[in-house]
Amino acid sequence: MIVTQKKTYSFEEYLAYHDDTDLKYELFNGELIPMPPASGIHALIMVFLYDIFKAEIQRLGLNWLAIPNSVGVRTAERKSRIPDLVILSEIQRESIRTMSSAVLESSPILAVEIVSEGNPQDDYRYKRSEYAVRGIPEYWIVDPIKSKISILLLVEGFYERTEFTGNQTIVSPTFPELTLTVEQILAA
């Protein structure tokens, strides 16, 4: 029996990788993980949250930037994730202008992941631990399958989770004046 070994990539090789397709890849322990196209509900929730965050950033007069599904976050030596949505600081906003691959080496202000049916453990377990190690202060897990949203806040290196369902108003320290319910988000 012939055993073939999968190619593993360094972070630098990952940044330079292009396969002439429109696929996006995350890097997990040196392995390229293709990102499948989003489901309809996934895409609708992402655009809805992008619009909400963008409007709130503008209303508050902040020089932050909401970016859906196109900026990566380096989470370890051979790991990089592409959250469904990130909120960038003014410094990060300026730094991605000159990047050949938009992958942050620093923590975004907030990251959002929308749970997909095929891999919920990625968002609840793996990304949760990677984002905590990276120091992302606020992490949202939007779960249209279980009809809930988890807001995770980084406290002394670990996430403390609060779950919201139904018509509960989500509480976000990053956007404390936001009045948004789980029902509104899931009905996007």
Rank of each mutant, 00 (worst) to 15 (best):
residue 16 A to K: 10
residue 22 D to Y: 12
residue 6 K to A: 14
residue 30 G to T: 11
residue 26 E to Y: 00
residue 24 K to H: 09
residue 34 P to W: 09
residue 27 L to D: 00
residue 23 L to G: 07
residue 11 F to V: 04
residue 9 Y to G: 10
residue 28 F to Y: 12
residue 24 K to G: 03
residue 28 F to E: 13
residue 10 S to W: 05
residue 33 I to D: 00
residue 16 A to H: 05
residue 10 S to T: 14
residue 33 I to K: 04
residue 14 Y to D: 08
residue 6 K to E: 15
residue 24 K to R: 12
residue 23 L to H: 11
residue 27 L to H: 02
residue 17 Y to S: 11
residue 14 Y to Q: 07
residue 23 L to A: 15
residue 26 E to F: 02
residue 23 L to F: 14
residue 24 K to P: 04
residue 21 T to F: 09
residue 25 Y to V: 00
residue 7 K to G: 11
residue 10 S to P: 08
residue 13 E to V: 06
residue 33 I to T: 07
residue 26 E to G: 01
residue 9 Y to K: 07
residue 34 P to M: 09
residue 28 F to G: 03
residue 7 K to C: 08
residue 31 E to R: 03
residue 26 E to S: 02
residue 26 E to R: 00
residue 13 E to M: 06
residue 26 E to L: 01
residue 32 L to T: 02
residue 11 F to M: 03
residue 17 Y to N: 13
residue 15 L to Q: 09
residue 5 Q to Y: 14
residue 17 Y to K: 07
residue 31 E to I: 07
residue 7 K to A: 14
residue 26 E to M: 03
residue 18 H to R: 12
residue 21 T to S: 15
residue 29 N to R: 10
residue 27 L to E: 00
residue 33 I to S: 02
residue 12 E to P: 01
residue 20 D to N: 11
residue 19 D to R: 01
residue 9 Y to H: 11
residue 16 A to Y: 02
residue 30 G to I: 04
residue 30 G to K: 05
residue 15 L to N: 10
residue 18 H to S: 15
residue 32 L to E: 00
residue 26 E to W: 01
residue 19 D to C: 01
residue 35 M to W: 00
residue 31 E to W: 00
residue 18 H to E: 14
residue 9 Y to F: 15
residue 9 Y to R: 06
residue 29 N to M: 03
residue 24 K to N: 05
residue 29 N to L: 11
residue 8 T to W: 11
residue 7 K to H: 13
residue 24 K to I: 07
residue 27 L to M: 02
residue 30 G to S: 13
residue 32 L to A: 01
residue 17 Y to P: 11
residue 5 Q to C: 12
residue 7 K to P: 06
residue 28 F to L: 11
residue 8 T to V: 14
residue 14 Y to R: 05
residue 26 E to Q: 05
residue 30 G to Y: 08
residue 30 G to E: 09
residue 23 L to C: 15
residue 6 K to S: 15
residue 5 Q to P: 06
residue 9 Y to P: 06
residue 22 D to Q: 12
residue 31 E to D: 06
residue 20 D to R: 10
residue 8 T to I: 12
residue 15 L to C: 15
